[in-house]
């Protein structure tokens, strides 16, 4: 009985809070994310065209572009610019590979003061770690499914 009344009060309160809380402006945020995310992709496309014009094969050009984009993300993080882009762009600058670089370089910079082993070494993947774990795990699962489908379809 006590517990039920307590939960009731909590529910009423949470509804009251919901009414007070200003919501993030979804449309504005989405436009920013779209424009900035799109611009990052344009930069990637620019480098892709550049490398293709150098005569690098279509199969390999992805590696070159990824390397350049990771470098750019890391570089802008080091300059202290990337977090300011992220403040406005949100997912627009987190999702591209530059955001991945940011998520590794920023903790590496932050935790340098705890030393190279327990600071940089162990904290470097504090944000990117889950992405790597589940990214790699799901690619393995997808790979196995792909393999089975191929075997069965034969």
């Amino acid at each position: 009985m006590e517990k039920r009344k307590e939960n009731e009060i909590k529910n009423i309160y949470q509804q009251m809070v919901q009414k007070k809380v200003p919501q993030s402006s979804l449309i504005k945020d989405a436009i920013f994310a779209f424009v900035v995310g799109g611009l990052i992709c344009d930069v990637g496309q620019f480098f892709m065209n550049l490398f293709l014009s150098f005569g690098i094969s279509k199969d390999d050009v992805g590696y070159y572009v990824a390397t350049v984009m990771v470098f750019l993300g890391a570089f802008l993080t080091g300059l202290g610019v990337y977090d300011n882009i992220g403040k406005y762009a949100g997912a627009g600058s987190i999702v591209p590979i530059t955001g991945f670089a940011n998520s590794i370089v920023s903790p590496a910079m932050e935790y340098k003061r705890e030393g190279y082993i327990f600071g940089v070494g162990s904290k470097m993947f504090v944000i990117a770690g889950p992405i790597l774990v589940y990214g790699i795990s799901s690619s393995i699962i997808v790979g196995i499914i792909y393999y089975l489908v191929k075997v069965l379809a034969r």
Binding site: V21, P22, Q23, S24, D29, T77, G78, G80, Y82, D83, N84, I85, G86, K87, Y88, A89, G90, S93, I94, G99, N102, S103, V105, S106, P107, M109, E110, Y111, V126, I127
Partner: peptide, 17 residues
């Protein structure tokens, strides 16, 4: 920030609250 949230240079968005 570094104890409760993210590294300083990490590009994320804060909610209005």
């Amino acid at each position: 920030e570094r104890q409760f949230r993210f590294p300083l240079e990490h590009g994320n968005q804060r909610p209005p609250t």
